[in-house]
C-alpha cells in the first residue's frame, strides 16, 4: 500500500525584508512515516522551510497542504497535529520542569489522569526525573534540550518538526535523541529534522533534502544522493617532498581527465567522479604504477568515504559544517 502524502508544497517562495530571498519555488512532497533530514549551509533556507511547513511563516507565493489541509487556512487545526521545536530552547527559566509540563499539558487540552500519565511517560522517556522539580534556570544545556523536546511531543503530534535539535547535546544525548526519533517514527509518526550533523542524517533519515540559496537541489535517500553527487577522494602521501609536480600532475590528468588533482607538501589529493565503471582498486593500481615510474615511494594511501558533505560541496561549492566564510565563497568562485 502506498503511503499517504503528508506534505505537499507547490511553488513556495519566501522573501525576507530588504529583498533577502529565503525560498525559491520549492516543490516538495513528503509521505507519512518518514524521517526527513533537511541539510544545507547556514542561511540556505532550511529553517525557513521548516517554519513554512509549521505554518509560522507566511509565504508570498505557492500553496502548501499539510495532512490534506490548506496550511494557510487551517492553522488552528494543524496545531494539534504538528509540533515545531525551535532551535532556541523556549523555556521559562523561573519555572520547574514539572510546572512546564503541566502548563503545556493544559494548553494542549490534556487534563486529569491522561495529563498525568502523559507527563510520567515523558519524564521516563526523556530521563527527566533527576531534575524535573528544579527550576529550568539551573539546568545544563543537555537537560534543557531534553525538556524542550519532551514539551514538543506532549500532545503526541503526527508530524514533528525539529530545528537543529542535537546542537546542545553530548554524544550520549545525541545517541539517545536518534533512538527516540526512530521509536517515534515506528509509532506511526513523521519527523522532519534540520541538522548540520550529516552522519546521523545519513544513517537515520529515510530521505534527505539538500538546500542551497533557497533552492531544493536534491531530494532523495542519502545513499542515492551520495552515489549521484559525491566524488571519490584518494589521498596519497609520499615519503619525500614531491618535486617536478607539473610532470606528475600532467601525467595524472591524462589518466583521469575529469579528476580534480591537488598537490600539497608530500600529499596528493585526487577527486574522481564515481562513474559506472569506477573501481577503487584499479584507480589505486594505476596511480601506484605512475608513482613508481616517477620513482616516488608511497608512504600511505587512503580513500575518503563518499559523504553527504562531499555531495553538497560538489553541488554547491559550499561546506555544510563550516560557517559561512570567505574561503567558502572563494572555493565556489574557483569552481
Amino acid at each position: 500500500m502506498q503511503a499517504a502524502t503528508l506534505i505537499n508544497l507547490q511553488g513556495i517562495c519566501k522573501t525576507y525584508p530588504k529583498g533577502i530571498i529565503a525560498l525559491k519555488s520549492i516543490n516538495l512532497k513528503i509521505t507519512e512515516r518518514e524521517i526527513v533530514g533537511i541539510v544545507g549551509a547556514n542561511g540556505s533556507g532550511k529553517s525557513t522551510l521548516l517554519k513554512v511547513i509549521a505554518g509560522t511563516l507566511e509565504v508570498e507565493q505557492g500553496s502548501s497542504e499539510i495532512f490534506q489541509l490548506n496550511a494557510q487556512k487551517n492553522t488552528e487545526k494543524l496545531k494539534k497535529l504538528i509540533s515545531y521545536v525551535n532551535q532556541d530552547r523556549a523555556l521559562d527559566p523561573e519555572m520547574t520542569g514539572k510546572e512546564m509540563l503541566c502548563y503545556f499539558s493544559a494548553l494542549y487540552g490534556l487534563s486529569g489522569k491522561i495529563a498525568e500519565q502523559r507527563q510520567k511517560k515523558l519524564i521516563d522517556t526523556f530521563e527527566l526525573d533527576e531534575f524535573i522539580t528544579r527550576r529550568v534556570k539551573t539546568y545544563s544545556g543537555g537537560q534543557a534540550q531534553r525538556l524542550h523536546l519532551a514539551i514538543g511531543v506532549i500532545h503526541q503530534p503526527k508530524l514533528l518538526l525539529l530545528d537543529e535539535p542535537t546542537s546542545a547535546l553530548d554524544p550520549a544525548g545525541k545517541s539517545f535523541f536518534w533512538d527516540f526519533i526512530q521509536s517515534y517514527q515506528q509509532q506511526g509518526n513523521s519527523i522532519i529534522i534540520v541538522s548540520h550533523e550529516l552522519e546521523p542524517v545519513r544513517q537515520f533519515c529515510t530521505r534527505v533534502l539538500l538546500i542551497d540559496k533557497g533552492r531544493l537541489i536534491a531530494n532523495d535517500t542519502a545513499d542515492n544522493i551520495i552515489h549521484s553527487y559525491a566524488k571519490a577522494v584518494l589521498y596519497i602521501k609520499t615519503t619525500s617532498k614531491l618535486k617536478q609536480n607539473d610532470n606528475i600532475k600532467h601525467s595524472m590528468q591524462q589518466l583521469f581527465a575529469s579528476a580534480d588533482i591537488q598537490f600539497k607538501g608530500q600529499t596528493v589529493r585526487l577527486e574522481i567522479e564515481q562513474t559506472k565503471d569506477f573501481n577503487q582498486s584499479s584507480v589505486l593500481a594505476t596511480i601506484l604504477k605512475l608513482f613508481q615510474e616517477y620513482q616516488l615511494a608511497v608512504a600511505e594511501c587512503r580513500w575518503e568515504e563518499p559523504s553527504l558533505e562531499n555531495a553538497y560541496f560538489n553541488l554547491t561549492g559550499f561546506n555544510i559544517s563550516a560557517p559561512v566564510a570567505k574561503n567558502n565563497k572563494k572555493k565556489r568562485k574557483a569552481r
Binding site: 509549521a54 509560522t56 488552528e76 496545531k79 494539534k80 509540533s83 515545531y84 525551535n86 532556541d88 530552547r89 523556549a90 523555556l91 521559562d92 527559566p93 503545556f104 493544559a106 494548553l107 494542549y108 487540552g109 514539551i151
Partner: peptide, 21 residues
C-alpha cells in the same frame, strides 16, 4: 520577557484559544 526567550512563540503554537491565555 516571554517574547524574548521565545516562550510566547511556543504558547502561540498551541491550539489553546489566545483570548483565554
Amino acid at each position: 520577557r516571554d517574547m524574548q526567550n521565545r516562550f510566547l512563540a511556543r504558547i502561540i503554537a498551541t491550539p489553546a484559544p489566545k483570548s483565554l491565555i
